[in-house]
Design a protein around this nucleic acid. Structure first.
Lengths: 335, 335
DNA sequence: TTGTAGGCGTTATCAC
DNA sequence: GTGATAACGCCTACAA
């Protein structure tokens, strides 16, 4: 078997010590220009690939970060991931991707794995992970950035969260301003902070407009079995003239359900999405949505983590991202 | 600074040699049940995380595979990635993700990086990487699986490809059967094999139906600056009654452009997509598309790679995936 | 400018 | 059933 080329092979062939090779590799210390050239040529010839494992054992750096997200096929996350990836790439850091499906047990084991890999930092999006495990991770001194997860010890960990309450408020207010008074809302699971917050915003808007709260217009959906169609039917039956969707994908499904029920959006019913993922612009009618700067959020996350990795103090401990209303064609004034 | 816990710390605290700890860790060799229990307890207590780097230095296994794809936000890829991820997960293999943006130079450096990491295998989706670099990779003895990339030495490397020609043929034939005679096609860049193949299929269908080829209905688009709107306008101006889109996203954009031009799909013009990504069902009207089993393709890719990693011979050297016509509501018979 | 010695944390091998 | 020793491939520190 052709054993892997090591630094020793290069050193031998170049007739120098392996230390010199190392110097050339890392551009550290002076190396005679002639030997340097020769070494480089031989590296090329042998197609020598230095082992990161060996290197990181001594440098205690892996140039790798772990990224834990629930689902890469969710455009919300993939857009953020792209922002992260593009940003870290510039500094020669690579990404170890863990999809957790939001299963706590898997999240826990992925965190362990990340630590086994001795990653330099970790980005964690995990609304359900219990406080104990989260705290354990944070106290492990590993640089951590949280996405959409608040934690009491704000001074210890950086997190970036979406202001779901204002988002819910703004979206509901917009519909109220359009004259809607019977507004259905599809929120996520009740355990999720964002669901609760968004609901609070929604309720506050209603109360600001002195619209009595109709609990039957509030429906919770579950990631796995979303039952959008059934829920849409329910809301229509309860005379909702507008629906606040859980996110853009949901909004698209709601519109589809409406169409199947013979309702036209926005003529018969208004629908408003959340997140502003790229496809929100491709859906017909173009979605009105609460837009988020997903790619930029990825950039912020990555930049913050890299600062932490470099030992720089970050002044910001919390970034709150405000969803902005982006008016499309899926909403209109009630007549 | 609190140094990382190592196997030695565990050994010391347990009052045994580190070899015993290693045995417990790997369930290898006999260990006295009492000491085993004690060791496990201490590992737990100290929250000891064995270093993969150190381990892989000696085992020559990293339990990591590299995944090179152009763009994670492209649903075509993210769906495949999900299939891969879910599959490898079962065998304790982790994924190092590289987004290449289809830039050859970045692909080359990512391949190098993957080798630096000493990954156990690599999944490569790279229509543009030159033969020389590709061949170099393959001859490096690293298990490789290619996605949508054919190569002459079929016996040396496994690849999974989409039968773009049949796909193009089937799609065009379907439209021809519906009575369309002026069918526009938006293909990808000319350097991509799939573009060429699809075009061949398209032309073959036309010729089978004795429809004269109108070159002005064939437009090439580029990933970065897709200019869908302009191209759609062109095709409409040239009296196309149907359009074969590059993929589902493109199809959605085409429909949108049509709407903006005051054309109704499918009443005034038919549009057919490619790939069958999840959102093809959310677009309004629901897309007619050439459906691909993306998730399953991911599974196949992962399973094959794992077999190669385990040194098992794989009988299959090539999997050709046939796109199947999935009729939606974006196409209809010409009147 | 270059070389030598030592160690990073783990497993393999062989001895006890 | 357990322990000692030698690797794995690289970098740091110091010496020449």
């Amino acid at each position: 078997m052709d054993r892997k080329i090591t630094i020793n092979d290069v050193a031998e062939k170049a007739g120098v010590s392996r230390q010199t090779i190392s110097r050339v590799l890392n551009n550290k210390g002076d190396v005679n220009e002639t030997t340097r050239k020769r070494v480089l040529r031989i590296i090329e010839e042998l197609d020598f690939q230095p082992s990161m494992q060996a290197r990181s054992m001594v440098t205690r750096k892996t140039n790798t970060i772990a990224l834990l997200i629930p689902d890469i096929t969710n455009p919300f996350f993939s857009e953020i991931v792209r922002g992260i990836d593009r940003t870290v790439r510039a500094t020669n850091i690579n990404v170890l991707l863990f999809s957790t499906d939001e299963e706590v047990s898997r999240e826990v084991s992925c965190i362990q794995l990340a630590q086994n890999y001795n990653v330099d930092g970790i980005i964690l999006c995990s609304p359900r992970l219990d406080e104990i495990n989260l705290r354990k991770l944070i106290s492990s001194k590993l640089p951590v950035v949280l996405l959409n997860r608040e934690i009491a010890e704000m001074n210890k960990v950086y997190s970036i969260i979406v202001d779901a309450q204002t988002g819910g408020y703004t979206a509901a207010k917009y519909l109220l301003d359009l004259g809607h008074r019977s507004i259905g809302i599809l929120v996520g699971p009740a355990y999720a902070d964002s669901s609760v917050k968004r609901l609070i915003g929604y309720k506050k808007a209603l109360s600001d407009y002195a619209v009595p709260l109709d609990e039957s217009l509030i429906l919770h959906i579950d990631h796995q079995h979303d039952k959008i169609h059934e829920n849409t039917q329910l809301l229509v039956k309860r005379n909702a003239t507008a629906i606040l969707a859980y996110n853009d994908m949901t909004a698209a499904k709601i519109i589809q359900s409406c169409t199947e029920m013979g309702l036209e959006v926005p003529k018969d019913i208004s629908v408003i999405g959340f997140d502003g993922i790229p496809i929100s612009r491709l859906v017909n009618p173009r979605l009105t949505t609460m837009d988020l700067p997903l790619y930029e959020m990825g950039e912020m996350i990555a930049n913050t983590l890299m600062k932490m990795i470099n030992g720089e103090e970050t002044h910001t401990k919390l970034t709150v991202v405000l969803p902005l209303l982006k008016v499309g064609q899926s909403t209109r004034a009630i007549t």
